[in-house]
C-alpha cells in the first residue's frame, strides 16, 4: 500500500519487534505448561518478503529482548532464553540491557501552523490591565469600590 520510506522503516521495525514480543509471551506460556499453538493458532504472515523486515530478522532482532534494567536486577532472562518458540525454529533467545539508539533530531519550525501573536497595541493593553490587577491584589482597599 505505501511505498513511503518513512512509513516503511518504522512499520518494518515494529513488525519485527512484535515478533520478538510474541516470542516472549509464547515462551513464558511454554514455561507454564501451556500449548499456546493449539490454544491460539497464529497465522504465518511471511513478513520477511518485505526487504526492510528481512534485513532486521537477519540481525536477530526477533529473538532478542531488552531488560531496560539500569541496576541489572531484571530476571526476564530466566524465561527469555534457550530455544525460540515453534515459529522461529532453531533460533536461540537472548536478553540485552538496551538497544543501540539512533539520532533524534528536532523538526524545523512551520510558521503556517502558529498565530502571529499579539500586535504591539494589544500587548500594551494586556500589560496595563495586568499591572492594574496586580496593584489591586497588593492593595485590596485602595482601588476597591465596595
Amino acid at each position: 500500500m505505501s511505498s513511503n520510506k518513512t512509513l516503511r522503516s518504522t512499520v518494518a521495525y515494529l513488525i519485527v519487534r512484535d515478533q520478538a514480543h510474541e516470542n516472549a509471551y509464547a515462551k513464558a506460556l511454554e514455561t507454564l505448561g501451556v500449548d499456546w499453538g493449539r490454544t491460539l493458532p497464529i497465522p504465518k504472515t511471511d513478513a520477511e518478503r518485505y526487504p526492510e523486515v528481512k534485513a532486521l530478522l537477519e540481525q536477530g532482532l526477533a529473538t532478542k529482548q531488552y531488560t531496560f534494567s539500569v541496576e541489572n536486577l531484571s530476571e526476564a532472562g530466566k524465561i527469555f532464553r534457550g530455544a525460540a518458540p515453534a515459529t522461529v525454529d532453531g533460533a536461540t533467545l537472548s536478553t540485552e540491557q538496551i538497544p543501540a539508539g539512533f539520532p533524534m533530531d528536532i523538526a524545523v519550525e512551520r510558521p503556517e501552523e502558529f498565530s502571529p501573536g499579539l500586535d504591539p497595541e494589544l500587548l500594551a493593553l494586556v500589560q496595563a490591565t495586568a499591572e492594574l490587577e496586580l496593584e489591586d491584589a497588593e492593595n485590596p482597599t485602595q482601588n476597591s469600590s465596595g
Binding site: M1, V11, L14, H21, E22, V34, E52, V53
Partner: peptide, 25 residues
C-alpha cells in the same frame, strides 16, 4: 491471572503485527 494475561498479550502482539502488514505491501 498470569496465563490469561500472557495469552491475551500474545493475541495483542499477533494482531498488532497482522494489522501492520498491509501498510508495507
Amino acid at each position: 491471572n498470569l496465563v490469561l494475561d500472557l495469552l491475551y498479550n500474545l493475541m495483542l502482539e499477533s494482531t498488532g503485527r497482522l494489522q501492520k502488514c498491509p501498510s508495507t505491501r
